[in-house]
């Protein structure tokens, strides 16, 4: 649902960088999306194709790198993906704490020509 305005923002940022580099068009966009960023890659792709029409991003290829959220164990320091209905560390059983891993949502790089 909320991927529409977010995709507009992605296209705006990419078009700006393209213009600043005095390039004609954006060929590809590399996006890093954490699962807790709240954005679904497939939806961004769908909107991207529609919204980018008539912009320097038209027909650019969208490359999405997904990042799984990880917890950090306060006892043994292990970073781990949690099992459903649990926060327990697989190594020592202590409940892990949230980290920033999995909340990423940024444009890493673009290719222009």
């Amino acid at each position: 649902m909320h991927e529409y305005p977010i995709t507009e923002q992605i296209i705006k940022i990419c078009s700006q960088h393209c213009a600043e580099a005095k390039a004609d068009k954006v060929v590809s966009v590399s996006l890093v999306v954490g699962d807790y960023s709240g954005c679904v890659g497939e939806s961004i792709q769908m909107y991207f194709d529609i919204i980018s029409e008539g912009t320097p991003c038209e027909s650019a290829k969208l490359k999405i790198k997904r990042v799984k959220p990880k917890l950090k164990c306060p006892a043994c320091g292990e970073f781990f993906e949690r099992a459903p209905m649990s926060f327990a560390c697989p190594k020592c059983g202590v409940d892990g704490e949230p980290t920033e891993i999995g909340k990423e949502f940024y444009i890493e790089e673009i290719e222009v020509e």
Binding site: I6, Q9, I10, I13, C14, H17, C18, A21, A23, V27, L31, C39, F105, Y106, I107, E108, E109, I110, E111, V112, E113
Partner: peptide
């Protein structure tokens, strides 16, 4: 018409 890579590193939610 060379393809160039641009390092962006910009958060989408910045605005």
């Amino acid at each position: 018409h060379d393809i160039r890579k641009l390092n962006v590193m910009e958060n989408v939610m910045d605005e």
